[in-house]
């Protein structure tokens, strides 16, 4: 959050906003302390049903989407680290992403970081029906959990995870609600190890800087 705040301070004069949405079934109680500590100047919203995850077909956090002045998506969802604190874990350098973001804020549609319509058509697909059902199972699980039927919610969280195995939001959120080993027989680090280096986030596909040829 502090890095996003610095970036926001730098770019907001250029008609730029950050809308930061917590994917937290625990609501303000879970997300609030983080916000109160960082006191960001930008807008922070609470999403107990992971609606934004569903709308944009996201699979993990942190994930970001760039939306232009007309409400058009300039870049669809991809992993968005603001700094390199967890670089040892995911191997991504934050700097090229932040450079791209600055370029887009300065140049708008002329920025090479805006996805072309051709790339958009290649990349964006309708949501799979299993993933749509996973989102409904997840909301049902969240309802049961909140109503105090925690044990019965687990079956629906598991169903959401089965239907959308790519969604780390549905896994990590459910594991965090109780004893992951007891309820799900696993935990985050075990699952990351199983991937053996395969990314567990929506990959970044920033245009590569052109190398000088000798």
């Amino acid at each position: 959050m502090p890095v996003w705040q610095t970036l926001y301070g730098e770019l907001k004069k250029n008609n730029f906003e950050i809308v930061s949405v917590a994917q937290d079934t625990g609501g303000a109680k879970a997300a609030g302390p983080w916000v109160e500590k960082a006191k960001p100047g930008y807008t922070v919203l609470i999403d107990t049903q992971h609606e934004v995850t569903r709308l944009f077909d996201m699979v993990n956090v942190p994930t970001a989407v760039w939306i232009d002045e007309k409400g058009r998506i300039a870049r669809p969802n991809e992993v968005a680290y603001a700094d390199n604190r967890l670089k040892a874990l995911h191997g991504l350098d934050a700097e090229p992403y932040l450079k791209g973001l600055r370029d887009w804020v300065a140049n708008g549609d002329r920025s090479p970081f805006v996805l072309s319509d051709k790339e958009w058509k290649e990349r964006l697909k309708p949501q799979k029906s299993d993933h749509a059902l996973a989102a409904a199972e997840f909301i049902l699980a969240e309802y049961l959990h909140r109503a105090g039927n925690r044990a019965d919610a687990v079956a629906h969280y598991k169903e959401a995870q089965r239907l959308n195995p790519d969604s780390w939001n549905y896994k990590r959120q459910a594991w965090a609600l109780g004893d992951a080993e007891r309820d799900y027989g696993t935990n985050f680090f075990k699952e990351v190890q199983k991937l053996n280096g395969k990314p567990y986030y929506a990959p970044r596909t920033l245009p590569e800087p052109k190398e000088k040829k000798n």
Binding site: E17, V19, S20, Q23, W34, V61, W66, L101, G108
Partner: peptide, 25 residues
């Protein structure tokens, strides 16, 4: 938001928006 006030994404039309998701878990 944290105070319970509703915000729409489309309220931000006219600006460039970085829509960012995160979580406490």
């Amino acid at each position: 938001d944290l105070k319970g006030k509703d915000h729409k994404l489309s309220d931000f039309r006219g600006k460039k928006v970085l829509l960012l998701t995160w979580a406490s878990w």
